[in-house]
């Protein structure tokens, strides 16, 4: 099964986004990696690396990120992670992308590519009109 990691500057935001996504997609493996690892606002490559290794069962991992350093730390975490699986950052809004990605990932036929594609579909969403 494809694993998901949600990276946010706030650990509460990352946990909350995982809660919302998990409610829609029972059975998806989704792990929050928020905050700087020391209780503050920020992102942490070792924390993201741990989350990747937690959700990785060999099929691949898709990462959703919020802003700025989240992308750089996620890239670095991918380089540091001890895995043979594909690990990819989706270029998508973090909440809507996580939700879409989790729904797709709960499908047993999902691949890294299909989860990234569904997550990135969320870029086109309009909320009003």
């Amino acid at each position: 099964m494809i694993g998901l990691v949600v990276v946010s500057h706030s650990s509460k935001a990352a946990e909350g986004i995982c809660e919302i996504a998990a409610q829609m997609a029972g059975g998806a493996t989704i792990e929050p990696a928020g905050g700087d690892g020391e209780g503050g606002i920020g992102t942490s490559a070792p924390r993201i690396q741990d989350a990747i290794e937690t959700v990785d069962d060999g099929d691949g991992v898709v990462i959703l990120v919020d802003l700025g350093s989240a992308v750089m730390n996620a890239e670095l975490a991918i380089e540091m992670a001890e895995t043979e699986s594909d690990v990819v950052i989706a270029d998508a809004p973090v909440l809507e992308g996580a939700l879409n990605g989790a729904v797709e990932a709960s499908n047993t036929k999902a691949t890294v590519e299909s989860v990234v594609e569904k997550a990135e579909d969320a870029r086109e969403y309009h909320k009003v009109n």
Binding site: G42, T43, P46, S69, M72, E75, M80
Partner: peptide
């Protein structure tokens, strides 16, 4: 540095 510096400086300097 990667594990102790927050924000973008961790990956940029440490990485």
């Amino acid at each position: 540095l990667i594990s102790k510096v927050g924000g973008a400086s961790g990956p940029l300097y440490g990485g």
